[in-house]
Design a binder for these strands. Structure first.
Length: 865
RNA sequence: GCGGAAGUGGUGAAAUGGCAAACACACCAGCCUUAGGAGCUGGCGCCCAAAAGGCUUGCGGGUUCAAGUCCCGCCUUCCGCACCA
């Protein structure tokens, strides 16, 4: 007795370890076939993790989603590519090295081994034969190869620039890695601005295309597309030259007297989106770092002091992350600029709110038609001149600033009376004709600074020769290997600079002594193209084969956290376009469909070590099993929403799986006994045919109906909206019905072949969500071969249909009762049934039915007076 | 300020414009028992002792025979961008 009970008890641990072993013994199981495969291809990809040593719940969720999809697609007969790898370069390895005195490589590889064990324990269906580890020379040599290709194409350059410097990381950060003025890795560390020689990728060469192609990415979340659109920040406008005034007509002893001759033709180029307001420009504002400011303040120490102050304010605000919050300050230079259209002279100011790195670093200030200019002019008593009138003269109260483009020009000479848009066009044409301006599109997107002064990254394959300048490392000398033995410190520049064997090289051009570049590449370089490497991971003569890329790309489905919506996904798109232009691939976008899953939350906050609300996947797996842990992460919320982690919920899913186990094992005898006569050559891919013999009992029909409905629901969700939470709920409902019919399942009231069909399909439906249990039940039920490659069950619409349906009856829109009618009843029959209902009769007694709306199969509404 | 998403029971949530709260969790009552982190039965939005009935999807309007769902305005929360000229 006790033994029997023990048998019926669901215990995930032995089941899961049994299957884990079997799967490990069959490494080909998850391998994709080559481009000559007759099956349609499906490339499902989840973002590769950083090998910190520990998977967290966000990972579990991410990979549970992708794994469910991959398994489903296998069952649907696709040639599935489902790879995994490691984003293995990066600073934490160096920090760990400092802390534990472990070499970064060792630390990283150990972490990878640990996380791989976790992946396998969770039952993730990854093809490890294509594993990519970005910190290994096999991989990073191709980063260097790409770098050289891009250098040849003029897509790599070097320049001195203000860079974001994280004192904690002791390295430079890309703009994309600065969040609210702080380092993306160190939320409390303010980023400083420093001047350094840096390597850049010319991503701005693709700004227009990166923006335009977003429109084509209709398989991407709108949110991600919008974020990228804002990030690229296209702005259409006009550049116009104001001229520094030649004659300075002021008294003797003023600054003007010292004016040098070459000031005469100095141009101050401004960028504006509203050139139509230019007749209202009453000052020109320069960024503190603008070259003309340096020139004007050279002979004016008082001005120089003021400018330094403004610059300081700006810098502080930038480092504080809230540039918008600083108080607007400015200082007049005492000099004037000439408006090229009107010849008017306007004062030149320096403003702390004008940014050198956006537009031209100079603006024309039109107080009447711009909020900021208005505020500034009011503060400093600069004239405010209205030059745009609303189209419909809102009488009297002309409240300024009037910023709408819906207006007509006034006080604008020959342009008076034109609409804003007409005027913009004519003014641009006029400027171009006279050579003092042009139409211009500018972007917020900046070139991608890829230099890092760190050790644990891809060495940049360049050589500095005192004679030949910058010399690329010849291709046959790749890879430039990272030296293994190295002392890691966080100060004093790149650690590589202190390794003489690394630094000192022979110049490939002149053969003389030269120095190797000691910067390494941003790790986002690694992750910009890793998914191309998966398809040809062992290729030693090229990053990947073109034929394979043409077969596998674009990726059918990419899944990852929304935190990568800008950085990683923009870089990846850029890299794909760049490779296309190198002739390596034909696709212009890497990813067909992109999915951003929500965060995992606990107690109202994102799980994080600092908040102390981390739940360890290992813990959950140990307590409830991998199936329960994965399945809960899919059941608790739709995948795109944030998920509130509640351990009670995991226990609930675990109890559900226990019920499934009990149900299936309790009736497996019926299945196995009935097997001999049920398999008339059709294998166990059971169709609905056996149920339509006409001899089946009502309960059997009912259960089969539920089964077909459940199959239909889940299939539809996989194809479309991915609400796996309701898929699992549907399976629960199905199991609840089966369980309620427990007695009939064993009594023969439900025929053995039907029981077999119901239980086998239950295992198949569970396969994407709870792979261990599904495999075990499949085997116990005598299922053929691997469940992973068994065809997904098909729903028979005829059998899924209800015989009788309930129709809600409303009177004047208010629910009154529900009537039962045969399925497929027409409007007339439904109306009759509704009117015949006693409750309805009571309600309409003495009143007139004005109108009857019948939506067959849906509802009836009686409009009554 | 601009852009995006969301707001439904005690909780996570569900609902092609057609019975709001499916499926779970928690809780309550009962049963069972060699007691388990078990199992089974029932209850569980709010008002009302119960029934009958009424009310209920952030707030206010609108469209519609019918609105959680569509439209307009507002409030709140979260996310992204932000003196971007």
């Amino acid at each position: 007795m006790a033994e029997e009970k023990e048998l019926l008890r669901y215990n995930p641990a032995p089941i899961e370890s049994k299957w884990q072993e079997r799967w490990a013994a069959d490494p080909k199981m998850y391998a994709a076939e080559g481009p000559d495969c007759v099956k349609p291809k499906y490339y499902v990809l989840e973002m590769l993790p950083y090998p910190s040593g520990q998977l967290h719940m966000g990972h579990v969720r991410n990979y549970a989603i992708g794994d469910a999809l991959a398994r489903y697609m296998w069952m649907r007969g696709y040639n599935v590519m489902h790879p995994m790898g490691w984003d293995a370069f990066g600073l934490p390895a160096e920090n760990a090295a400092l802390k534990n005195n472990t070499p970064p490589r060792e630390w990283t590889l150990a972490n990878i081994a640990a996380m791989k064990r976790q992946f396998n324990r969770l039952g993730m269906a990854f093809d490890w034969s294509t594993e990519v580890t970005t910190c290994l020379p096999d991989y990073y040599r191709w980063n260097q190869w790409f770098f050289l290709r891009m250098y040849e194409k003029g897509l790599v350059y070097r320049k001195k620039s203000k860079v974001n410097w994280c004192p904690e990381c002791a390295t430079v950060l890309a703009n994309e890695q600065v969040i609210d003025g702080c380092c993306w890795r160190h939320e409390d560390t303010k980023v400083e601005l420093r001047d350094l020689e840096q390597w850049f990728f010319r991503i701005t060469a693709y700004a227009e295309e990166l923006l335009d192609d977003l429109a084509k990415l209709d398989g991407w979340p709108e949110k991600v597309r919008t974020m990228q659109r804002n990030w690229i920040g296209r702005s259409k406008g006009t550049e116009i030259d104001f001229f520094l005034e030649e004659k300075v007509d002021q008294g003797p002893g003023t600054e003007g007297a010292t004016l040098a001759q070459d000031d005469k033709r100095v141009r101050i180029r401004v960028f504006t989106t509203r050139v139509d307001t230019i007749f209202g420009a009453t000052s020109v504002q320069l960024a503190p770092e603008h070259p003309v400011v340096a020139r004007l303040s050279a002979s004016n120490p008082a001005l120089r002091v003021k400018v330094t102050e403004l610059l300081e304010e700006q810098k502080k605000a930038r480092e504080g992350g809230d540039v918008g919050a600083i108080e607007k300050h400015g200082v007049p230079t005492g000099r004037f600029a000439i408006n090229p259209y009107s010849g008017e002279r306007v004062p030149i100011w320096v403003g702390n709110y004008v940014l050198m790195d956006y537009g031209t670093g100079a603006i024309m200030s039109v107080p009447a038609h711009d909020e900021r200019d208005f505020e500034f002019a009011t503060k400093y008593g600069i004239p405010i001149r209205q030059v745009i009138k609303p189209v419909q003269e809102a009488e009297g109260s002309e409240s300024l600033p009037f910023v709408s483009e819906d207006g007509v020009l006034v006080n604008s000479g020959e342009y008076d009376g034109l609409t804003c848009l007409q005027a913009q066009k004519l003014l641009q044409e006029s400027a171009a004709r006279q050579g003092f301006g042009e139409a211009k599109v500018i972007f917020r997107l900046k070139d991608w600074g890829v230099s890092r002064q760190r050790y644990w990254g891809t060495p940049i394959p360049m050589i500095h020769c005192p004679k030949d300048g910058l010399v690329p490392v010849p291709e046959d000398q790749l890879p430039v290997l990272l030296p293994e033995k190295i002392e890691i410190t966080q100060t004093g520049g790149s650690p590589l600079g202190r390794v003489p064997e690394f630094v000192n090289v022979i110049c490939p051009k002149c053969g003389g002594p030269a120095r190797r570049e000691t910067d390494t590449m941003d790790t986002f370089v690694d992750s910009s193209w890793y998914f191309y490497r998966y398809i040809d991971a062992k290729n030693s003569s090229a990053p990947f084969s073109r034929v394979r890329a043409e077969y596998w790309f674009p990726i059918d489905q990419y899944i990852g956290g929304v935190e990568h919506a800008i950085l990683h996904l923009i870089y990846s798109r850029f890299w794909t376009k760049m490779m296309r232009d190198l002739g390596m691939i034909t696709n212009g976008e890497p990813v067909e469909r992109q999915f951003s899953q929500g965060m995992v939350i606990k107690d109202g906050a994102k799980m994080s070590k600092s908040k102390g609300n981390v739940v360890s996947p290992d813990d959950m797996v140990a307590r409830y099993g991998a199936d329960s842990t994965r399945m809960y992460s899919l059941f608790a919320a739709p995948p795109d929403r944030d998920l509130d982690w509640q351990e009670d919920g995991v226990a609930g899913v675990s109890r559900f799986l226990a019920r499934v186990w009990k149900l299936s094992t309790a009736h497996e005898g019926v299945v196995l006994k009935g097997h001999d006569f049920s398999r008339a050559g059709s294998g166990d891919s059971i169709s609905g045919a056996l149920a339509s013999e006409g001899s089946s009992s009502p309960i059997e029909k009912k259960l089969l109906r539920k089964m077909h409905q459940t199959i239909a629901k889940i299939t539809k969700d996989f194809e479309g909206r991915w609400h796996f939470n309701t898929c699992i709920a549907a399976i629960m409902e199905y199991v609840n019905e089966l369980q309620a019919a427990d007695a009939q399942l064993s009594s023969g009231e439900v025929a053995a072949p039907a029981v077999e069909q119901m239980l086998k399909n239950l295992a198949l439906l569970l396969a994407p969500f709870a792979p261990y249990l599904a495999a075990e039940l499949w085997e116990q039920l005598g299922g053929d071969g691997s469940i992973l490659r068994h065809p997904w069950p098909e729903s028979d619409p005829g059998l899924a249909k209800e015989d009788e349906i309930e129709i809600p009856v409303q009177i004047n829109g208010k629910l009154t009762t529900v009537v039962k009618v045969p399925a497929g009843s027409d409007a007339k029959a439904i109306e009759a049934a509704a009117l015949a209902d006693p409750k309805v009769q009571l309600r309409i007694a003495g009143k007139t039915v004005v109108k009857v709306i019948v939506v067959p199969g849906r509802a009836v509404n009686l409009v009554v007076k």
